[in-house]
Design a protein around this nucleic acid. Sequence first.
DNA 1: TATTCCTTTCAGGAAGATATGAAAATTGTA
DNA 2: TACAATTTTCATATCTTCCTGAAAGGAATA
Lengths: 181, 181
Amino acid sequence: MKVALAERLDQVEEQFVELWNNMASLWGISPTMARIHGLLYISGAALSMDDIMERLGISRGNVSMNLSKLVEWGLVRRVHKRGDRKEYFESLSDVWEMFTLVANQRKRREIDPILTTLRRCRDELTPEAIGGQALKEPAQKRFQRINDLLKLLTLFDGLAQRFFESHKGLREAVEMLTSEE
Amino acid sequence: MKVALAERLDQVEEQFVELWNNMASLWGISPTMARIHGLLYISGAALSMDDIMERLGISRGNVSMNLSKLVEWGLVRRVHKRGDRKEYFESLSDVWEMFTLVANQRKRREIDPILTTLRRCRDELTPEAIGGQALKEPAQKRFQRINDLLKLLTLFDGLAQRFFESHKGLREAVEMLTSEE
DNA sequence: TATTCCTTTCAGGAAGATATGAAAATTGTA
DNA sequence: TACAATTTTCATATCTTCCTGAAAGGAATA
């Protein structure tokens, strides 16, 4: 009976890792990176590279590279056990924290540069920039569309600024939105 | 002078398409699909396959495939001009509408299945499911973590349900969050 | 129905992304 | 400092995803 339970736990773990793998594109990280993180998260323990290699069946180099990325993202931290020369790795445990971490990261890496170029595009089409000529229909429309987009992204950006800064802020915001009638 | 303006418009268009290309991973669509959509959005006009092929320098087959995906997603619609045998394609113009469209689509395709498996995982570890044995530390922790995650995702899911259903709802929510002190 | 114009499909090829494994580098131990 | 244990790096191989172009399919005209 105990064996049966252990087996079931392993199955759940496997399913979970697989699920994390599928979520990778949603988080904007590579599938293997996600699987490693999934394993660390679900196991709730500090694992060594060898543990991970064995459980996921991937090569040492691969594990090494992806672990350092995870550490860079701040989702995983290195742990040292005294009397042991190996390094161990441990995932954050708070889902809200993980979420805000990734959100902020992606904002900085992907959204901010986009906003910058978008603003540059707009400024190219600004009435002054084009020498005060009245824009004809198509150009007018283009300017319009860039502006619309910029407005929406700026709004979202402001939201992110406010609510994704800390996981506490996010939690509050979500609770507010879900509770109130 | 007029030429200079036209050139500048083209440059902006190109920059914009490039930008859309970079946003692709954020929207969860392929880069080429994004570029095509970007071109249609920014030009604000109904373009034929040949127009798109020429402006983006991609093959007919590629354009055809990606356009049908865009139509499937609902971001682009087919337009017929009378007296012309060609088909033309036109993007939605409302950014909020585009956003909710994509958000809902991704929710249905990617998040809902995840929630389903996650719930299955949880139920595997439910006290009843494992025959009432007291869970030992590691198993206990796993159950805990799955539950935490499930809670967060369910919350988000609820939010999506409420606010992403229509672009009006989204707009309202965003305004609420940004205006209030 | 035949012809022309246009679109879709899809097999094969190109490009890009990921993984491997062995050598080099690093870190701790004696 | 030499040695042993562990991690990192990186050239090469593998896998996946995407693109092309040509052939097949459809639809409008005559």
